[in-house]
């Protein structure tokens, strides 16, 4: 589904990704871990299409298409979803209206008619229960006055509404208490099926107790330096990142 080949990217003069390769198939959950400043969030932003970065080499294929040629909104409509680390607030725009616009933009892209109001409301009701989001949030301005946990739950709710092929969770667990973490993870687990894939970016092994990854990648200095199964995450937690540095000889 997603294939990243030898990706190099920089922001200004600073090279952040230095030859990153990654392959994600449908039905898989991949976790990316690594110390601060190794380019994890950069990778998420680049896949989603944020324009601050310059790709100097390499390519990203999404279902065989060259992702780097598509605009961020086209990528989204093709089925790439990014759950933001810091979701923005949009005053005066309710989650309902926002989601309606997003769902219809996607439907239009796939040659479908706009969703019928009744169907949309039923869908919203079903999906909000997935992350235990109270009905009242849907009519409030999106993310305005939401707590950190509510914002993250709202991101997962939006993910559920848009049913993406590839979902990237950029440190969705940061700032969550244990209950909110479990709700978010449960939501993800319920959405997981053999047609979609998840890329989970995290600092802590904690989240991976709930969202069990098929692969764990350790990122260091703009590259994936080690790949393993979920036991690798446990090993990281136990030994810290210095162990990786020794292992790769830096």
């Amino acid at each position: 589904m997603l294939e990243i080949k030898n990706l190099h990217a920089k922001i200004g003069d600073k090279e952040i990704l230095k030859g990153l390769s990654l392959k994600v198939n449908a039905g898989e959950v991949h976790a990316i871990m690594g110390p601060n400043g190794t380019g994890k969030s950069t990778l998420a932003s680049i896949i989603a299409g944020k324009e601050d970065y310059v790709i100097t080499a390499g390519e990203i294929l999404f279902e065989g298409k060259n992702l780097l040629e598509l605009s961020p909104d086209e990528r989204a409509r093709e089925g790439v979803f990014l759950a933001f680390q810091y979701p923005v607030e949009i005053p005066g725009v309710s989650t309902t209206n926002f989601m309606k616009a997003a769902v219809n933009a996607k439907r239009k892209h796939h040659g479908l008619e706009p969703i019928v109001a009744k169907e949309f409301l039923a869908l919203m009701n079903e999906k909000r229960q997935l992350v235990d989001l109270d009905k009242s949030y849907l009519s409030r301005s999106i993310n305005e006055g939401f707590s950190g946990g509510e914002k993250k739950r709202n991101e997962i709710f939006q993910m559920a509404m848009l049913d993406p092929k590839l979902a990237i969770l950029d440190e969705t667990d940061s700032g969550l208490d244990i209950d909110a973490l479990r709700i978010v993870a449960d939501g993800v687990n319920k959405l997981k099926n053999k047609h979609n894939a998840f890329l989970v970016i995290t600092h802590y092994q904690r989240l991976l107790n709930y969202i069990v990854p098929d692969y764990v990648h350790i990122m260091y200095d703009g590259r994936i330096v080690k790949t393993g199964d979920k036991s690798l995450a446990l090993k990281m937690e136990e030994r810290g990142y210095d162990w990786i540095k020794e292992e790769i000889g830096v």
Binding site: P72, A76, I90, A101, K106
Partner: peptide, 15 residues
């Protein structure tokens, strides 16, 4: 940031 957030949900800049 606001525009990118909306783009990421499938909306064009104009929308």
């Amino acid at each position: 940031d606001l525009l990118f957030y909306c783009n990421q949900r499938g909306l064009t800049n104009e929308e």
